[in-house]
């Protein structure tokens, strides 16, 4: 659509490579936070809005993370829209970074929020270990799948 100045074309390619990564990462983080909210808070109602043992630091961290995730989900998609209108979408790289974002969020939530800060637990009145294991293994799988895909995306030259 708009011709790119030759002297900056290479810089632009690098810039949009990075933007593909950040767009996917932000969207992945936001997406996982959204899934967490809809499935575990609202539909299953396993997670609690607040559990009585939540310490102040837990509320604090949870608020920050949630606020960031809201913004990341929407901001990530607007960055993607920007890449599309510039014809600069690199799909494999984008999907890889979504997986990395989602996996990182899942692991962070599973380890830092649930275990270290004890904001809330996955489910109440049950043996927690299988839930914690399933939660974090799932997060790790997402993360490693994302990294593998990113490595693969790096090997191929950008075709678009």
């Amino acid at each position: 659509m708009v011709s790119v100045d030759r002297s900056t074309a290479k810089d632009d390619i690098e810039k949009y490579e990075k933007r593909n990564f950040w767009s996917g990462l932000f969207f992945g983080i936001g997406l996982m936070a959204f899934v967490d909210e809809v499935i575990f808070h609202q539909l299953l109602q396993w997670h609690h809005f607040y559990d009585l043992s939540t310490p102040q630091i837990g509320i604090f961290a949870d608020g920050l993370l949630n606020s960031f995730a809201w913004f990341a989900a929407i901001g990530g998609l607007f960055m993607f829209a920007d890449l599309r209108r510039r014809n600069a979408v690199w799909m494999r790289r984008w999907v890889a970074s979504i997986l990395i974002g989602a996996g990182t969020f899942q692991l962070f939530d599973g380890i830092i929020d649930h275990k270290v800060l004890r904001t809330h637990q996955i489910r109440y009145n049950v043996e927690l270990l299988p839930y914690d294991l399933a939660w974090n293994i799932f997060g790790a799988i997402l993360l490693f799948a994302g990294i593998a895909l990113l490595v693969k995306a790096r090997k191929e030259r950008r075709s678009a």
Partner: peptide, 18 residues
């Protein structure tokens, strides 16, 4: 700033719940 401010609102809401 927006992210921090909205976080402040969420943190206050949860602390009011508690």
């Amino acid at each position: 700033v927006l992210i921090l401010a909205l976080a402040g609102h969420k943190i206050l809401a949860k602390s009011l719940y508690a």
